[in-house]
Nucleic acid binder design. Structure first.
Lengths: 227, 227
DNA sequence: GTTGACATTGACGTCGATGTCAACTTAGCT
DNA sequence: AGCTAAGTTGACATCGACGTCAATGTCAAC
């Protein structure tokens, strides 16, 4: 309840009255893409708050004014950037055709899948740390980005909950565990640990971290892990 | 590695060359306290970025200029606020003399203590949600606050690691579990879940959340939980 | 009650990022 | 080539938050 209502940094760059339409010409589309790439570069280098529209224009090699042909504000580019990138990140986390699990038991298979998912998540986070940090930064004051973040989290949680429910139907996980809440907690665990490692610069060794996360996850669900 | 180096919001309010000394007179101390209280009020209402020094002065009922007698910048008040408040938060989490656990076994006792600690943490977070959100916001761009946040986290993790090591000595928890990594993961789980609930406004019911967190925590460590 | 150190006041100058716009360029079309 | 719509340019005006400071006020000590 007592959460800062937190509008935008200065005030009222919530978007221009006329959000620039997507470009119709080929040149326009290229320009927009260049600006987006430049924005990502500058944001990752300077952080969202310090970054200036001028820097983005400069990085894209265009005049200051051209920026406003495509985006209404710094916040607007960022939102576009997030929207464009989110899909890529999710794609990179999609289930790859992995080598089969060593152990054929339902529980062993489940643990193997959890491990694979955790490894993919950690790798994705490591390769996009700056972006994740930016995402978090803007989340703290932009409601729209906050909504995107929540949606992403909910998708993750949904997948995990589904997998837990499956294991409950198989009788491997206790039926009286709240799958929704448990999924939230486990996702928070992995998210939070990796965030601390990469964004807050904690002292971790990747392999050991993933192994511990998988082990805790499995045991939390009552799956046999290790001997 | 690719983390936004993220200086301050505009630029260079990293602190004035001459950080105002603490007041010597009684009046000065009262004034400083009033400004701090006003700062907290305004920050919680508007968020750190939107808040203006003028607003803080106004809320404290003093002239704009008086602010600078006590603090060098908006960031400076915030740091002072965090420093002052952190102790209170930690105090509120200290072990209270609780009623004895229902079950005398070492594991049952451990689970009970975990549950108590989780309840205290959640209650503290709920009562200081706005502050925690602020803390997170500023962490994303101020290195000094980031350091404070890390320190707080490390203290938490240290306590948990210690308790895990104790359980390992008692033979209740597997000795080959990395206590440090596990402590980080478990702290991240509770932190992250509560953050999602209160700051990102997730849909949770407190009792069920705490119960699930404790249960997962206990099971993750291999402690018997529930029947 | 006079003195002097300390604190308060609020009007003012400064500064830098933003967003605009009129002039100019590009490119597609006939 | 000539026309038009779309895009580009960069100098400029705007705006708001910040931090300063000279004048004024407060208070304790002597």
């Amino acid at each position: 309840m007592p959460r800062p209502s937190a509008a935008e940094p200065p005030a009222g760059d919530a978007g221009p009255s006329v959000p620039p339409a997507l470009p119709t010409t080929e040149r326009g589309r290229r320009m927009r893409a260049r600006l987006l790439a430049a924005a990502r570069e500058v944001f990752e280098r300077d952080g969202f708050l310090t970054a200036r529209v001028t820097d983005i224009s400069a990085a894209a090699g265009v005049a200051h004014g051209s920026f406003y042909t495509y985006f209404g504000s710094k916040t607007a580019v960022f939102r576009a950037l997030v929207a464009e990138t989110m899909d890529d990140l999710y794609a990179s986390m999609a289930t790859h055709g992995e080598a089969g699990p060593p152990d054929g038991s339902p529980a062993g298979l489940a643990v193997h899948r959890i491990d694979q998912a955790n490894r993919r998540f950690v790798a994705m986070y490591r390769q996009n740390t700056a972006l994740m940090a930016l995402f978090e930064q803007v989340t703290t004051f932009d409601p729209e980005v906050r909504a995107l973040r929540r949606a992403a989290r909910e998708r993750n949680v949904g997948r995990v909950r589904h997998s837990i429910e499956q294991l409950q139907r198989d009788g491997v996980v206790a039926a009286d565990l709240d799958a929704e809440y448990a999924a939230h907690a486990l996702v928070a665990m992995v998210n939070g640990a990796v965030h601390y490692w990469l964004v807050l610069d904690g002292d971790f060794e990747e392999e050991r971290l993933v192994a511990t996360l998988t082990r805790l996850w499995a045991q939390a669900l009552g799956l046999p892990s290790r001997g």
